[in-house]
Amino acid sequence: MSLLEIKNLRVRVAGHEILKGIDLTIDSGEVHSIMGPNGSGKSTLAQVLARRETYQVIDGEVLFNGKDLLAMKPEEAACEGVFMAFQYPVEIPGISNTYFMRSALNAMRKYRNQDEMDAMDFLPMFREKVKLLEMDEKLMSRSVNEGFSGGEKKRNEILQMAVLEPKLAILDETDSGLDIDALRIVAKGVNAMRSKDRGMLVVTHYQRLLNYIVPDRVHVLVDGRIARSGGSELALELEEKGYGWIDGEAQATVPAST
């Protein structure tokens, strides 16, 4: 059984069809990248998988570990092991990062009938992960994302991923707004999380991130369809030739599928 199976997924947002029939399968241990020009539907795909309810699924099926993902509420999907690193992480004033992370972890443990983790057990584990992301510990007692720089917010997302240990990690344009040093740290965090028990879907506009997180498969999304799939070398080819290259080809040929 595959970790994630997307079959003919069609999604509408505010009356417009954004995803026009996506087929994609990710197995545990694999890292897939979705690339594509602005407006091609990359982020929509990420948000739908995370179960954001402003997106209307009009056709298709998504199985996560064999379960109907589209029937799940966002928190159920999260507890089942779907994690999304946000492109624009929100601020939660008055709630400390540490408290937030422990609440999130315990909500998931409770869902899985595991004992909740007390502060004594949580903190050492948390500190370990904070170190991995090279984050200032002071940020952990600050309110969630409040007053964080753009880079700190993105690192905080990866930190959360490291704490929550999802089965499927979706990175929605995690590289946007990162300088090269922050990018390296983020990639280090992500690579440390690569495992045979975990699948990843890395959504990005630029190839740059894929120098650091080398994917097993690359899919190019154009106008709501996967126009081409290939190995990591496809990303390099794209960098060289630009999205226009795929665009022209997509119009001339039948869309490629995995």
């Binding site: 509420k73 999260a78 999130a104 909500a107």
Partner: peptide, 8 residues
């Protein structure tokens, strides 16, 4: 949505 995505 952010908090729900974290399991709450």
């Amino acid at each position: 949505f952010y908090l729900q995505q974290r399991g709450l």
